[in-house]
Write a protein that binds this DNA or RNA. Structure first.
Length: 953
RNA sequence: GCCUGAGUGGCGGAAUUGGUAGACGCGCUGGAUUCAAAAUCCAGUUCACGCAAGUGAGUGCGGGUUCGAUUCCCGCCUCAGGUACCA
């Protein structure tokens, strides 16, 4: 009987669903194992061949663990809130809830057709009120807590209030922006709103006026990681800084733990580095410089206190609060002009051209160590958001200070002698101090410690650790997200809704346009805004990362209405053992999740400090992008396309633009010779009617308006296209949908082929060429069980050779699954199948374990063969066969014989032969004279089971 | 600029601890089958020279360590990803 993948696959997918094969219980004697995929955003385009790569890998691992006797949690769900659905609604008027639902249905179908072993009874959707009830609750809990640095954990804000009542904040060590010290009396004399304001500076979720990334075109505020190079990641619109009251999460409170605990988890080094850089810890000193002839002090932050004797001027950020006060009358006009110039520059411009700009305030500060007067400047290279927004400039040892000083003619004093360290750059903390009074002659690290000590003695500052990590802006002025569980009273004081009033459901509307001045669309729903008497509701919504920050916990107990997840469930499943997903979430999602998880840990609600023990970043499957060249200048008013060959020959690259073409029209797409012919030109014109009368010029002739004019008697033509590799995306017309591939080759083949393409972490272009090899393998595997069209397996005892083939394969597959090398697993199965075909083996003793081992990769064919072999239950639960080394042992081993490290011949030795025996026999081998003739044998190296090397000379 | 990876046949890739470089698959070449084609099967396929046996070269480039280096060390080049006026 022929292997007909589609019939088998549909049959078993139905069986699994009807029998709840993948349903997993929270009660089990088996050890637990949690395999998680990053849940998808259900976009309108559906899945393309790149999406399933990670899902297939994690599914293989989940199935493997299940067959090894683990109770495996392997869930799937949808990150369903987000901007695309809202933009789609703005264009089409279709409600985001409706389009999201439609998209999820399509994703469900596609994911099911891929044969994944998800427990669909645990599916979560972040836009489901039953789900976001708990997103809102966790946010409220963050509001009700502050970070106590003495206890090094989050504690209830109510405790803090008690402390304030007793002794003010005099002894409180907390993550806060509160700088003023107050005692109990001062606290009790504060008004209600003053108290609230003060507490707001401690809460882990707090409201503050801040500069946010404002995108006019999208009418919303974006998170830092949604902004790339000053333009929005989505849509590529310009982004500017705008002051707005925002809800924030005090992620910085956890900076040290987020950094330190990276050591405890098994993530790739590149990913850990990305997170480390993002957190950006730096050790330095915070200190005050007196302003000359004034009581004012300027607070600065530096990582190089040792260079203070070279501090010849100071710089304030343009937004710094002292700029106004310090500017002298003489410089007022110049400073005002400079400030308005800075304001006119968008983030984009600042990034694009980094010219050195600045203006002198007219004021001077006093260097506390040299007691010399140094000028105070304003410059945009100092950022208000980092450190204190002011620096002491050391032009001798800082690249930026140096260019600035050179441009404006400021003093430069060398303070570090780097002559002992050739090749060291300015930013390296290396060298000996010079021109620096009491630290002269010290090495840099020693000098840093010495100056820090002196600074503290003088009472002008302290050593301080700074982080680049900023608190997370959490407000979005858009519709399709979780409403904040917040109401404001008549004074504008924020109150969190209690759990009984959650979820606060997103009100329905047909109008998704941004509100006035960046207000959320919810602000127009006045009935809803005022629906709680005496209060008004917060109208912003949470960002997409909110729902994804804790979804992995919800899967543990997805239908619980009393808690985000029951404590029994959380204590049973603990944490995610294996997490698979794309590295594009390296900062946002993976940082927020770790933050939320640590907060819940502090509250005693989860048993682990880190949510994801091991993380694998699957690579991207890229697409081929095909372009045709179009002349920038029209010919006789018509667009003029040219063959890539002509562009190349006449070097016309500057005169042409590249127009992407749908890959379906391109013959041999992806190859150097890819081209379109007249038939595809007609398809192209049907797709792009604006080019109806365009000219298509190639070497053999020209096509226009349905007529091909040949140059030299050619009948047809190839217009060569330009191929590139890039992201698969709708806008590049290069999306390959898995459905058609599955239709043709079957799910098992698709799964194995995606794994066979290469290492899971590598990115590679999709290329359907090689799939026939995998398809052939599956057919050959199937045919091992068939003779003359009939399912035939024998109960005969397996031979030594057959056992060796089986156990070699089992060993390779087991070890390779454990190290996530799935591509080599596939080739191990191919090798075994080829060998068994040669041996004409159809014995149960060999084929049954092989079918079980193949099940994680190709579950449908394995299930079918398993049932034909009358295996018990589903192959999904069949014990994964263990390999037995004893079957791998050989009687004799073939050694390469090398002369001076180069292989010259081969010889077989008994597996039990001693090193000396091998050496003796090797030196007497026939044909060896040729190589050692006339030379002396200096040494013979025998590596048991590996090789023999004879050193002559 | 800095950080993290990677660079191996015509192509995707393998070589796990320093020990036969190129597993497995695609493609290509030749053959069988066929009226023919597709499909299938068999053989070959790193490059150069050679009819062949064979000889030489060979894992981005240049050095080094070693009996032996794709693997370790030093210096460079290229590509990918991340990141940046972060004091």
């Amino acid at each position: 009987m022929d292997y007909t993948p589609r019939d088998i696959e549909q049959k078993w997918q139905k069986y699994w669903e009807e029998n709840d094969t993948y349903k997993v219980s929270n009660q089990s004697d088996k050890p637990k194992y949690y395999v998680l995929d990053m849940f998808p955003y259900p976009s309108g385009a559906g899945l393309h061949v790149g999406h399933p790569l990670g899902y297939i890998a994690s599914d293989i691992f989940a199935r493997y663990k299940r067959q090894q006797g683990f109770n495996v949690l392997h869930p799937m769900g949808y990150d369903a809130f987000g901007l695309p659905a809202e933009e789609y609604a703005l264009q089409t008027g279709i409600h985001p809830a409706v389009s999201t639902d439609t998209n999820i249905k399509r994703y469900n179908e596609q994911l099911r057709s891929l044969g994944f072993s998800f427990d669909w009874s645990r599916e979560v959707r972040t836009c489901d009120p039953k789900y976001y009830k708990w997103t809102q609750w966790i946010f409220a809990e963050l509001f009700h807590h502050y970070y106590d640095q003495a206890a090094n954990k989050a504690l209830p804000i109510a405790d803090l209030v008690k402390t304030f009542e007793k002794e003010g904040n005099t002894k409180v060590k907390a993550a806060t922006t509160q700088e003023e010290i107050f005692d109990a009396a001062a606290w009790s004399s504060m008004s209600k709103s003053e108290k609230e304001e003060t507490l707001m500076r401690y809460r882990l979720a707090y409201r503050e006026v801040g500069y946010v990334n404002w995108c006019e075109a999208l009418g919303t505020v974006l998170a830092n990681d949604q902004v790339k190079d000053g333009i929005s990641e989505r849509g590529g619109h310009p982004v500017v800084q705008k002051a707005m009251p925002q809800w924030n999460l005090r992620t910085t409170a956890y900076a040290e733990r987020l950094l330190g605990d990276l050591e405890t988890i098994d993530w790739s080094s590149s990913l850990k580095t990305i997170q480390r850089n993002w957190i950006g810890r730096s050790e330095g000193a915070q200190m005050f410089f007196d302003v000359a002839d004034s009581d004012t002090k300027i607070e600065i932050y530096t990582t190089r206190p040792d260079t203070i004797f070279g501090a010849t001027y100071m710089v304030l950020a343009p937004e710094h609060e002292l700029v106004e006060q310090l500017t002298t009358e003489g410089q007022r006009a110049a400073i005002d002009k400079y400030l308005s110039y800075v304001k006119s520059r968008s983030e984009l411009e600042r990034m694009a051209d980094k010219q050195v700009t600045g203006e002198f305030t007219g004021a001077y500060a006093v260097n506390p160590f040299t007691n010399t007067k140094i000028p105070i400047w304003v410059a945009e290279y100092v950022l208000i958001g980092y450190g204190t927004g002011a620096i002491m400039a050391v032009p001798s040892d800082d690249e930026r200070d140096k260019t600035f000083a050179e441009k404006f003619g400021l003093d430069i004093i060398d303070v570090v002698d780097k002559s002992d360290y050739p090749g060291a750059t300015l930013s390296d903390k290396l060298g000996k101090m010079i021109n620096s009074d009491f630290i002269n002659g010290m090495e840099v690290p020693e000098a840093i410690a010495e100056v820090n000590k002196r600074v503290e003695q003088m009472g002008i500052g302290t050593a301080k650790v700074n982080y680049k990590l900023r608190d997370a802006g959490f407000s979005r002025q858009r519709y399709w997200g979780e409403p904040f569980p917040i109401v404001y009273d008549a004074d504008g004081t924020a109150e969190m809704l209690p759990l009984q009033e959650l979820p606060l459901e997103l009100p329905d509307t047909e109008d998704f346009k941004p509100g006035q001045g960046g207000q959320s669309p919810l602000s127009r729903l006045t009935d809803w805004v005022n629906s709680k008497s005496g209060y008004t509701r917060e109208t912003d919504t949470m960002p997409a990362v909110a729902g994804s920050s804790w979804y992995f916990l919800r899967y543990m107990d997805p239908h619980n209405d009393e808690a985000f997840a029951g404590q029994d469930a959380v204590n049973y499943w603990q944490d995610v053992d294996l997490y698979v997903g794309g590295s594009e979430h390296a900062v946002a999602h993976l940082m927020y999740s770790r933050f939320w998880h640590k907060f819940l840990y502090d509250k005693g609600l989860v048993p682990t400090q880190e949510p994801f023990k091991k993380l694998i970043n699957q690579g991207m499957i890229q697409g081929v992008i095909e372009f045709i060249y179009m002349k920038k200048e029209k010919t006789n008013g018509q667009a003029h396309f040219m063959c890539a060959g002509l562009v190349q020959r006449d070097d016309l690259f500057d005169e042409v633009a590249r127009i992407p073409v749908h890959i379906d029209y391109v013959i041999d797409y992806g190859s150097e010779k890819s081209f379109i012919n007249i038939k595809s030109i007609k398809q192209f014109i049907a797709w792009r009617p604006e080019y109806e009368n365009a000219i298509f010029e190639c070497s053999k002739g020209t096509y226009q308006n349905g007529i091909f004019t040949s140059k030299k008697d050619a009948t047809g033509t190839h217009l060569i296209t330009h191929s590139e590799v890039g992201k698969m995306s709708k806008s590049k017309y290069n999306v390959v949908n898995p459905d058609s591939v599955i239709e043709q080759y079957g799910t098992d083949c698709f799964r194995m082929y995606e794994m066979f393409l290469g290492p899971i972490e590598a990115s590679k272009p999709w290329d359907v060429q090689g799939i026939s090899g995998v398809s052939k393998f599956l057919r050959n595997f199937w045919n091992l069980f068939y003779q003359n069209e009939k399912f035939t397996i024998t109960e005969d005892e397996a031979t030594k050779d057959e056992l060796k083939v089986l156990h070699t394969c089992l060993k390779k597959v087991t070890e390779d699954i454990e190290r996530f090398s799935f591509n080599t697993c596939v080739s191990a199965f191919m090798v075994a199948t080829n060998e068994l075909r040669k041996l004409k083996c159809n014995k149960r003793a060999i084929l049954e374990p092989l079918a079980i081992a193949l099940a994680p990769f190709a579950p449908h064919i394995s299930e079918e063969l398993w049932s034909k072999m009358e295996g018990e239950g589903s192959v999904v639960m069949a014990q994964f066969p263990a390999f037995d080394e004893s079957h791998l042992a050989e009687d004799s081993i073939t050694y390469p014989i090398c002369i001076n490290g180069k292989k010259r011949m081969e010889a077989a030795f008994s597996a039990t032969a001693s090193k000396d025996d091998i050496e003796k026999i090797a030196l007497e081998l026939d044909g060896l004279e040729k190589w050692i003739d006339g030379k002396t044998v200096r040494k013979v190296i025998v590596v048991p089971k590996r090789m023999v090397n004879i050193v002559v000379g």
